[in-house]
Structure formats: structure tokens, C-alpha cells
Nucleic acid binder design. Sequence first.
DNA 1: TAGTCGTGGAG
DNA 2: TCTCCAAGACT
Length: 296
Amino acid sequence: MTGPSSPTATPVGELIVDWYASAARDLPWRTPEVAPWAVLVSEVMLQQTPVARVEPVWRVWTARWPTPADLAAEPAAEVIRAWGKLGYPRRALRLREAAIAITERHGGVVPSDVAELEALPGVGTYTARAVACFGYGRRQPVVDTNVRRVVARLVHGRAEAGNARAADLADIAALAPEDDERAVRFSVAVMELGALVCVAGTPRCGACPVRDRCAWRLAGAPPHDGPPRRVQKFAGTDRQVRGRLLDVLRAAREPVDAAALEPAWDDAVQRSRCLYSLLTDGLVEQTEDGLFTLPG
DNA sequence: TAGTCGTGGAG
DNA sequence: TCTCCAAGACT
């Protein structure tokens, strides 16, 4: 008997790695000579941010700050400006803080150890393993939103992934090829499968290398049963107001007074609350004479 | 653990 | 137009 779960069948991990060889996108941070530092920069930029928007900014950053020490020496204001409109600008601040930590505590060399990576500002479970795996070629389970969705369907037969769980790492590790080099390739390949084929909307199962082994399809592609995940509002939220305020300050070459920030948002209460939160986050600084500016 | 933190393209 | 959502981290 040679069913889908037959021991003689090619493991799904191997199928996914083979698929990746022909389907992978040609992304600049995937070229072999890219330094772990540049990989770290790419991973932080890619947090919650589409590839197309990251690519041009990443090219500028890696050319301008080719090592952690280069970024560490830069004033925060320049880093925030260079972040442009990638969104979640606290990431820029944390990346600079990580560069400083790498310079001071690791002799300017990005650590390859997952625990040491996770100790860096802005580097969590995902990013630490991504750097160890893609930057240093270490065998590491790497779980992002794409991987969780692939595993939810392929392994658990569910239409959508739930929240991140500790078991996610073991789930994907169980599918990885035995060979270390292929396991590294597998980590990026599963992400790519989730990004290109096993997508959040309507999955392109016709293009999937493991469609015949997918628990979700074998179960008849049942719809999502759990609670609908709520999508974040944006219009009118503090996030929008903070973005507007920062937009004004990025454009200004000199510190500005409070009046200069009024056009950013009408509601004075919300405007000042958001300005205060930006000060708290260290994204904005107040000068001695009470003017506002990006932090030096 | 659920809420917060930007931005803009796609369907 | 409006909803969804894109390689998370942090609190």
C-alpha cells in the first residue's frame, strides 16, 4: 500500500525544499555573500511589512551602514529619517540599539547564538532564529505567520492558524529534512510556500507541492471554525496620529514649536497624548526651549 | 494574553 | 469604498 502517509513516500519536507529550488523569489538578502548583519536588518524591516516596501530601504541601509558599528555611531534622528515610511518606527530605534549592543557586547559581530540574539532589542523568537538560520546557516526551526498557516493546514487540517504557540517550533522541526543543509533551506522554503502558495486569502492549491499530503484538503477543506480574528482599525487611532506627527518632524530640519504640529491632527487632546507617547518612546525629543525634534 | 504599535497595496 | 493583511515584538 502506498497511501499519502506511507513510509516509502517522499517526506513533505523534501518536497517543499525541491519546490523552493524552482519557485523561490530572487530577494537580495538571500544571496549567499550577504552578511548576518544585513540579514538582521532585513528581518527587522520585514516584521509586519511587505517585501516590496522593504527592498529599496534595505538597499540604502546596507550600503550606508554595512556593519553594526556604522549604525551604532549614527544619531537616532538620522536612523528614524532613513526608516522612511516603513511603519512601526520604534523598530528603527531598536535596531540602532541592537547595533550598539552588538558593538559593545559582541565586539561588533552579530551573535549566532539564538539566546544571545533574543537578548538584543527588537529581536524576538522569530527574528533570532531567522538570523541564526539564514544568516549563519544554522539548523533552526523558524516560525512566522506564513509557517504557522502552512502547518495549520498541512499538519493540523485547519483553515487558519491560531495564535502563536510554543509547540509551533516543534511542529515545524518535525517536518524538517534530516540533512542539515536541506533543513536550513527548508526553513526559508516553508515561509516562501506560505507567502506565495499557501496564502492567507484563497490558497493556490493547484501550485502546491504537497497538496496531496495536506490534512486540510484531505479533510475536504473545511472553513475556519474558531473565533474570527479581529482586524485592527487604523483611521482615527493614535497610530495614525503618531504617524502624522512623526511625518512633520521627519520633514523638519530644525526643531519646531507645538503650533507647527497642529496641522498634523485637529483633535488637540489626542494630538498631545500622541506627542507625549512619542516622547516616551524616544522617537521625539524636546529641546531646552520647549521645541520638538527627532532625537539626537 | 490581549492590546498596541504604521503604512499602503490588493481584492 | 472598505476590509484584509504583510518575514513580530513588547507589555
